[in-house]
Simulated scan of single mutants.
Amino acid sequence: MELSISDEKTKELLTEVMIDLLKTKRDILYDVVLEALEEVGLANAIAEGRKDEFVSEAEVFSILDNGAK
């Protein structure tokens, strides 16, 4: 005996599952989306930072040392 399901029924069932997940696991979905957005933001910041000139390690530590005083 072979079980078959139509594309329309499959779509309907998947939609129902997604809606249920959105309702019951909202906090998990929120965390996943937030983390993805943070990763995109970090990637964009890295890409933009690479357009500018690099700063030497000594200069960075000099600034940090002066800020700590």
Rank of each mutant, 00 (worst) to 15 (best):
I28M: 00
V55H: 11
D27A: 07
S6Y: 05
D7K: 15
S4K: 12
D65E: 11
I46A: 12
V32Y: 00
V55Y: 08
K51Y: 01
E16A: 13
I5W: 10
G67Y: 12
A68H: 11
L29T: 08
L13C: 06
A45T: 11
D31R: 15
E57R: 15
S56Y: 11
G49F: 04
V55L: 07
G67M: 09
S56P: 01
T10K: 14
L21I: 06
N44V: 11
K51M: 06
T15P: 00
A68E: 05
E35V: 04
E35H: 08
A47W: 10
K23N: 03
R50Q: 10
V60F: 05
F54H: 09
T24E: 03
I28N: 07
G67N: 15
D65V: 13
S4C: 04
K25Y: 01
E35K: 14
D27E: 11
G41Y: 02
L37Y: 03
L34D: 04
V32G: 03
D20T: 12
D20E: 14
T15V: 05
F54A: 08
D27Y: 03
V33S: 02
M1F: 03
L21C: 01
L64C: 03
V33T: 07
T10D: 01
L64Q: 10
L42Y: 12
K51N: 10
T24Y: 05
E53C: 03
D20V: 05
L34R: 12
V32S: 03
S62V: 10
G67T: 13
A36S: 08
Y30Q: 04
E48W: 06
A68Y: 08
L14V: 09
I28H: 02
G49P: 06
E2W: 02
L22E: 12
K51H: 04
M1Q: 07
S62R: 15
S62L: 13
T10W: 07
L34S: 07
G49I: 04
D7Y: 15
I19F: 04
E38T: 12
A43D: 11
V32W: 01
A43V: 09
K69H: 13
G41L: 08
F61M: 14
S56V: 10
K69E: 03
L34G: 02
E35S: 03
E48Y: 09
G41D: 10
A47C: 12
L64F: 08
I46T: 09
G67C: 11
E16S: 15
E16C: 05
I28V: 08
V55T: 13
I63S: 03
L3V: 13
F54T: 11
A36Q: 06
F54E: 14
L37G: 04
D65N: 14
A58E: 12
A45L: 08
F61T: 15
E53A: 03
L21R: 13
G67H: 12
S4E: 00
E59T: 10
V32T: 02
S62K: 15
F61Q: 15
E8Y: 08
E12H: 13
I5G: 00
F61Y: 11
M18F: 11
A43E: 09
D7I: 14
L21D: 05
T15C: 09
I19Q: 09
V33P: 02
S62P: 02
L21Q: 06
